[in-house]
């Protein structure tokens, strides 16, 4: 069953067409990799789906209903969570409070009895390395991204978007993250992840979607897309910049 479908999704910024007529889908239980060179429109695409920056035209069907342009807080309560490529922390809040925000407000009322316990559980789940009382403004980018993941999980998503969660990680941290993503998937959460690190993509994704200049150029199983000459050309063509 498709948990997410986009139909001819387009996002324009003035004259720039950042996302051009993209139709794609995510099935329940999928870990889909969204790949493409820098500036291809990957982040813009998930912003358009998650309501942060609504699409110019096209349709989004999520969880079997039309959610095109719905506000992000509504999407969150429907079961969509996301992390940010550039972390957007609550600078003065502790790690625990940051996660609690999603635990309290991201779930349907009454679903979470003990938001503090849930938040602690999520921090442990993502193996957050520092005390829960650490203030967000004292965290580095890698730690912030880990915290962001815990926050995203605290609202019990059915579908999770990850935006370049692995960038800047060491080899060891990358392996840890891989395990965490697999654990999330095993919980029954479907994942759409933007990623540049091929090693991670090849190991966790079962399907890939590749976009270039806002247009989808390939979609299929990980093997198919990774070996697609069009995709290889897109990456080679842009790596010279």
């Amino acid at each position: 069953m498709n948990i997410l479908e986009t139909h001819n999704l387009t996002k324009r910024f003035g004259g720039l067409v950042a996302v051009n007529n993209v139709s794609m889908h995510v099935q329940e239980g999928d870990v889909v990799g969204l790949i493409g060179p820098n500036g291809a429109g990957k982040t813009t695409l998930i912003n358009a789906i998650s309501g942060l920056n609504p699409p110019t035209s096209g349709k989004v069907i999520m969880f079997g209903r039309d959610t095109t342009g719905k506000a992000p807080e509504k999407m969150c309560r429907l079961g969509l969570s996301r992390t940010f490529q550039i972390p957007r922390p609550f600078p003065k809040m502790s790690a625990l409070e940051s996660v609690m925000t999603a635990a309290i407000f991201g779930n349907r009322p009454g679903k979470v009895q003990d938001p503090v316990a849930l938040s602690r559980e999520m921090l442990a789940f993502v193996e957050f390395p520092l005390p829960e009382s650490t203030i967000s403004e004292q965290l580095n980018t890698v730690q912030l991204k880990r915290l962001d993941l815990a926050r995203a999980l605290a609202s019990h998503p059915k579908l999770l978007f990850l935006d370049e969660l692995a960038s800047g990680l060491s080899e060891g941290e990358l392996n840890d993250l891989m395990k965490i993503i697999r654990k999330i998937s095993r919980k029954g959460i479907s994942i759409l992840m933007i990623e540049h690190i091929m090693q991670l993509i090849m190991q966790v994704c079962n399907r890939l979607v590749c976009i270039q200049f806002g247009t989808k150029i390939a979609e299929g199983t990980t093997e198919e897309v990774a070996n697609d000459p069009v995709v290889a050309k897109a990456y080679l063509g842009s790596s010279g910049e």
Partner: peptide, 17 residues
């Protein structure tokens, strides 16, 4: 907590519900 969340980061707050 909601006040602080929207005051400190509107996008993150909305994304958190």
């Amino acid at each position: 907590l909601a006040f602080q969340a929207i005051g400190q980061n509107m996008e993150a707050a909305r994304t958190s519900g």
